[in-house]
Design a protein around this nucleic acid. Structure first.
Length: 189
DNA sequence: GACCAGATTGTCT
DNA sequence: GACAATCTGGTCA
């Protein structure tokens, strides 16, 4: 994606990331998929966002330059990948929640220990495992050679479902989750 | 398909 | 010391 793609309105970016490609080249090989589900996390008005209570060591990347990867660890075992958005210091990001596997499916199957294509990337922790993304990539640019977002398909507005986000308690009523209508690879319809 | 418990650890109060 | 932007495998239907 062009670098200024990320210095824009977070909700617009969450919508327009649908259909684009996420690619990770690791020592084990290349794995890539098409983004089919995202969630926007905003600034002070959004109590579910990690940035809501100010900057800490953990969420520092979220307040840094847009277009970088904010990756954090949760539930004692899962890595979640976010795209930092908006101007520097905004503290906003888009969580990548699901991919449709495209390349390196064999590698994904190996990493996920399942052959079922629907179980490879249909959730935020599943896709990081399938692509081999961990804290090693925290703060990395998403326009770099090894880890990047690439433009692919543009999804028409009438094919995008907007609904409430998953797994949060505060600001749970905001319609900030977006996914491609009727897509088989979303985490939950 | 729906519901539920257990896993497991970094981060912040 | 509590909790977490989740997943899996179990039970029951």
């Amino acid at each position: 994606m062009p670098p200024d793609f990320f210095n824009a309105d977070t909700v617009s970016i969450a919508r327009s990331l649908l259909g684009q490609l996420l690619i990770h080249q690791s020592a084990d090989g290349l794995a890539a998929g098409r983004i089919v589900e995202t969630e926007a996390y905003l600034s002070v008005s959004d109590l579910a966002s990690h940035s809501a209570s100010g900057q800490t060591k953990r969420n520092a990347v979220m307040f840094g330059p847009p277009g970088h990867a904010y990756i954090y660890f949760t539930y004692g075992m899962h890595w979640l990948l976010n795209v930092v958005t908006g101007p520097v210091g905004a503290g906003e990001a888009v969580l990548i929640r699901a991919l449709e596997p495209l390349s390196g499916v064999g590698l994904m199957q190996q990493r996920r220990r399942t052959a079922n294509p629907k179980l490879l990337c249909s959730g935020p922790a599943k896709l990081t495992q399938a692509l081999g993304i961990t804290s090693d990539q925290n703060g990395a640019s998403l326009t770099s050679e090894n880890l990047r977002l690439e433009p692919a398909t543009s999804i028409p507005g009438n094919q995008v479902i907007a609904t409430t986000r998953i797994g949060i308690a505060r600001s749970a009523d905001l319609p900030l989750r977006f996914y491609i209508k009727n897509n088989l690879f979303v985490s939950k319809p």
